[in-house]
Design a protein around this nucleic acid. Sequence first.
DNA 1: AAGTCTTTGTGAATTTTTTTAAAATAGGGG
DNA 2: CCCCTATTTTAAAAAAATTCACAAAGACTT
Lengths: 218, 218
Amino acid sequence: MAETKIPRATAKRLPIYYRYLNILHDGGKNRVSSNELSDAIQVDSATIRRDFSYFGALGKRGYGYDVQSLLDFFKKILNQDQLTNVALIGAGNLGHALLNFNFHMDSNIRISAAFDTNADNVNTVQGGVPIYPMDQMVQQLNEQQIEVVILTTPAKVAQKVTDEVAETGVKGILNFTPIRLSTPKKIRVHNVDLTNELQTLTYFIDHYDQKDEKDDFF
Amino acid sequence: MAETKIPRATAKRLPIYYRYLNILHDGGKNRVSSNELSDAIQVDSATIRRDFSYFGALGKRGYGYDVQSLLDFFKKILNQDQLTNVALIGAGNLGHALLNFNFHMDSNIRISAAFDTNADNVNTVQGGVPIYPMDQMVQQLNEQQIEVVILTTPAKVAQKVTDEVAETGVKGILNFTPIRLSTPKKIRVHNVDLTNELQTLTYFIDHYDQKDEKDDFF
DNA sequence: AAGTCTTTGTGAATTTTTTTAAAATAGGGG
DNA sequence: CCCCTATTTTAAAAAAATTCACAAAGACTT
């Protein structure tokens, strides 16, 4: 709760900026202009400058932005200066893939625990993540002080599991199930729905001209 | 290209409406009001009514909307009255999971072909989908007249693969790589970035009050 | 050290999206 | 058949987001 409320649309772009700044930094570049950024990440340069300016005067006129300091700044803003442990619930099809997905490669996030009902999964380690039985979920979430969970259970148990999660200190759920979860206000849900994505993409293809290039979902 | 251009924000909600209408229909419900919908899918009822009204007068005052006819209407709008074949490129970690993900269960979309370089994958069938070697990609995309591909390759080959895809009739890419692809205008790209999702969720948790409930990413 | 060039930061305009609020109308009950 | 109620439709207002466009300021050149 700081910097007097950045617009949502801006907030959603921060990770995009952050990722590209890392790329620039790794490439040894130490300055960048809003126009260069614009070309690379396909966001209008005025939007970029406006976004940045919500955080103060981060650039220098006639020069651009210093990559290192912007990077440091966004790293802090995005909480990437410290490790965030998240848990994954439901180590099925998609859950499995996410366990093996190396979030830690380009972020300071890792999955530190997973939960599943399937006896074949439970008490194994997948992608370096231990899988616990579901009945230890609440306890583990509390012990590990997990604040974010990834929900990849079957749809039919999603709400039930969410209700249990709500008993813990969890504050955010990245919901891969198609269910619109109901949660207490203290929990924020972001929905990730692959079928919807495909349908939306198809809709845009069929109903919008090219040249209205400008999207960004998920 | 019809119904005189629906707002993007509305277009993104169409799959959400469609999915819930299916649920209502399966549940034997034959009428629904914007307020009931609002409760279920967590979109303001005025927004729902406005969204629907872009397509004409779909409801009846004092009654609500007829589930069956709304469903039929959106089915057509979303092209769900016919099967859409899509292809998947890159049958690694995430790609594998998507091959085994049953899109067809709640949409009229299926993955009809996959492509990979890994000799262990090539010429096998995963989740009912044949995996072809990469060097047959362009040919297969053309032969099968694929218009949408799901891109789940490693980041470092994403642009190269995209350039090849651009030689075919493909019109849309659902991009799971962190690369911001450059494509000819005829191709529309939707980005799905799991790391970004987690970072955004974390940002919202840390910087926004609860009660500003209203999201929807991805 | 002056002059030119570059690029930010930001008011103002514009566009897009959401929300308000009220008129209109269909449905159902008596 | 008329009235009441529920709920849509829509015009208008408000809010949010984007884009324009330019003055201001710093950086680079000579």
